[in-house]
Structures are given as structure tokens and as C-alpha cells.
């Protein structure tokens, strides 16, 4: 038995309480001041519900896109050699480094009907900027590194032996991927998706430019909080914040439970 459990666990819990739990508790405290009926009225008003639907829906959509393409990018970076690989690898971190508002402005500029991409979509009748599609694109931008950086190390660590074993048993390359590789990197992919999703739900800076902010249609939940603040409705802002936080927390907890279960099962 290693020493240090008391110290490390105690310190973890104390710091967690001080930095995360107490601050978050103030939100709940403030929201509790509203009273139940008013909390429901503000937190679940039609406008708020539309905002949640938009925020969670677009974040899930972007998370899925990132899960597919993030896996592809991680695969290509780990498995293949091609000129400029280092540059591509560095490019993946760009959304971490670029101020989100800058990203938002850049994406908006790209997708407005006069933009570099928007001008080609406009004649086809596809509107991106100021619609949910635009919001999803911004969230894809923000979330990509989470998926790539979660999957990459696991993919790199995956032993070649299991793939060879599958091949000797007659599996095609696709069957090997589907039945052997994918389940092995599944937990990491799920983590990446969860992080991208959680980040997407709360994202503000990069979204509000491209979203158009029409109440009930393209108004994201974080913006609703800001709007409430601007109307001095602080308790209302905290009510919406509480609903968002609980939902995010539930998603994260679910995913961590799945991971813990799969780790136990594999006896690691």
C-alpha cells in the first residue's frame, strides 16, 4: 500500500471545494432565492427552453462531427507520414490558442453571403451565418482539439499485435478497425466528445457573432444569461446558469461512469 492517500485526497478535496464547489454553490444559493415557481418560470420559459435546445443540440451536432473527423485526423497523424505533418499537428491546437472572439469574427466573415464560402452557398439557398448551422460550425472549430488530443495518445499506444492477431484470424482491414481498434479507442473518443460537447454548450465568444442572436431561434443559452444580466435580472441569470450546469454535469458524470465501468471490465 502506498502512502499519501490521506494527504493527496484531502488536499484534492479541499482545493476542489475552495475553487470549484463553493463558487458554484453561490450560483445555486442565488437561484434558490428565487423561489421554486419563479425559478421554473425563468429557468424553463419558452425562450429559455428554445435556447437550451439550440445550445445542447448544436453542441451535440458539433461533437458528433468532431468525433468523426477528429478520429480521422488523429488516425492520419498517428498512422501515416506525409509532408507537413508537423504543421498539421500544430494547426490542430489553433482553436485552443486563438481568442474565441477572433474565431467568431473570422467564421462570420467566411460564411456571410458576401464571405469567401458564403458567396458559394448563397446561390444554392443554403444559409449558414445567423442560423443553427453557423453555430454548429463555430462549435466544431472550438471542439476539434479536444477529440484529436484525447484519441491521439491512445491510438499511438495501441499495440500492433492485436491488429496482426485479427489479420491472422482472417479479418479484413475494415473488420479489424470496427471490431478491434474502434472498441479500444472508444473510451478516449467518448471523452473527447464529452469535452467538446461540454465546451460547446458553454461557448460564448466564438458563437455570438455567427449566431445572429434572434430570441427563440438563434439565441444560445449563455447569451440568454448575458441578456438577463443586462436587464439587471441577476437571479434569472443564475436560474438559467443552474439548469445549464446541471445538464452539463449530468452528461459528464454519465460519461465518467461509462468509462469507469469499461475500465473495470477490462481489468485494467
Amino acid at each position: 500500500m502506498l502512502p499519501g492517500f490521506g494527504l493527496s485526497f484531502g488536499f484534492t478535496l479541499a482545493w476542489l471545494t475552495l475553487i470549484v464547489l463553493i463558487p458554484l454553490a453561490t450560483i445555486f444559493l442565488k437561484a434558490a432565492g428565487l423561489g421554486w415557481s419563479e425559478f421554473l418560470a425563468v429557468g424553463f420559459s419558452p425562450r429559455a427552453m428554445a435556447a437550451y435546445r439550440l445550445s445542447f443540440g448544436t453542441a451535440a451536432m458539433a461533437g458528433l462531427v468532431n468525433a468523426v473527423f477528429g478520429l480521422l485526423v488523429a488516425w492520419v497523424l498517428v498512422r501515416y507520414d506525409f509532408p507537413g505533418k508537423q504543421v498539421v499537428s500544430a494547426l490542430v491546437d489553433l482553436p485552443f490558442a486563438l481568442p474565441t472572439a477572433v474565431a467568431g469574427i473570422a467564421l462570420t466573415a467566411l460564411y456571410t453571403p458576401e464571405g469567401w464560402i458564403g458567396q458559394f452557398l448563397e446561390p444554392l439557398g443554403i444559409k449558414v451565418a445567423f442560423t443553427w448551422i453557423g453555430i454548429s460550425i463555430a462549435l466544431v472549430f472550438i471542439g476539434l482539439p479536444f477529440v484529436v488530443r484525447s484519441v491521439e495518445p491512445v491510438l499511438a499506444d495501441l499495440g500492433r499485435e492485436v491488429e496482426e492477431a485479427a489479420a491472422t484470424l482472417g479479418a479484413t482491414r475494415w473488420q479489424t478497425f470496427r471490431h478491434v481498434i474502434f472498441p479500444a479507442i472508444g473510451p478516449a473518443l467518448l471523452t473527447g466528445f464529452a469535452l467538446a460537447f461540454a465546451r460547446g454548450v458553454g461557448e460564448y465568444g466564438s458563437v455570438i457573432f455567427i449566431s445572429g442572436n434572434m430570441p427563440g431561434r438563434t439565441e444560445i443559452a449563455p447569451l440568454l444569461i448575458v441578456t438577463q444580466l443586462e436587464q439587471y435580472a441577476y437571479a434569472g441569470a443564475t436560474a438559467i446558469a443552474v439548469v445549464m450546469m446541471l445538464a452539463s454535469f449530468a452528461v459528464l458524470l454519465l460519461i465518467n461512469l461509462i468509462q469507469a465501468a469499461s475500465r473495470r471490465r477490462m481489468g485494467a
Partner: peptide, 28 residues
């Protein structure tokens, strides 16, 4: 290799950790 019908036992076994023992055996 997939078409040679050769059984190969790897040094570190290379079992599929996420599959049950029965699924491992039935994989081929």
C-alpha cells in the same frame, strides 16, 4: 495474412481486451 489460414499465437497473446473470452475465440 488473412487468406493464408495460418494460426498464430503471439508472445504477449494479443487478446482483444474488450471482448469476452468466448468472443475472442469465436472472432475468426
Amino acid at each position: 495474412v488473412a487468406r493464408r489460414h495460418v494460426g498464430f499465437v503471439f508472445q504477449h497473446y494479443a487478446l482483444f481486451r474488450h471482448m469476452t473470452v468466448a468472443d475472442n475465440v469465436a472472432f475468426g
